[in-house]
């Protein structure tokens, strides 16, 4: 499978998690991508050199990968964890998800009213 853009990778990853609900395992691997600098010892020794991060995902025989550049990290991480958390729902739940604080009073009254009605 060729290298995908970040967004394409994320949507493919979504499908991968969905397909693997029955029996498969999804592996997501992350590694520093330093291939262009492999012979450049100066760049490798420089503590300020920034590298892309290669992210690969496999499940069964499907393989996808993407390169995440340093300035895309936050966005990618946010989307990636959203997808991961969404699909990792067979884990044991311990704490119930809290309701947002803002409409707490309103919802309380509403539940009372609803139960009366």
């Amino acid at each position: 499978m060729p290298l995908l853009s970040n967004d394409a990778f994320l949507s493919q990853l979504n499908k991968l998690y969905e397909k693997s609900r029955q029996q498969r395992t999804v592996y997501v691997t992350m590694k520093r991508y330093a291939y262009p600098q492999r012979k450049d010892t100066k760049a490798l020794a420089d503590p300020d050199t920034e590298y892309p991060c290669i992210v690969r995902a496999t499940s069964g025989s499907t393989k996808i990968s993407t390169l995440v550049n340093p300035h895309d990290t936050e966005r990618f991480h946010q989307h990636y964890t959203n997808i991961a958390v969404l699909h990792m729902d067979s884990l044991k739940k311990k704490v119930k998800v809290k309701k947002p604080k803002a409409s707490k009073a309103a919802t309380k009254d509403a539940t009372k009213a609803a139960s009366k009605a």
Binding site: Q23, Y27, V28, K31, R32, S90, K92
Partner: peptide, 17 residues
Amino acid sequence: PLKTRFVSEYRHKEGTL
């Protein structure tokens, strides 16, 4: 940093990460 990789394995059926 050049050799190390980080892998997450998720098995839905067994519910393990």
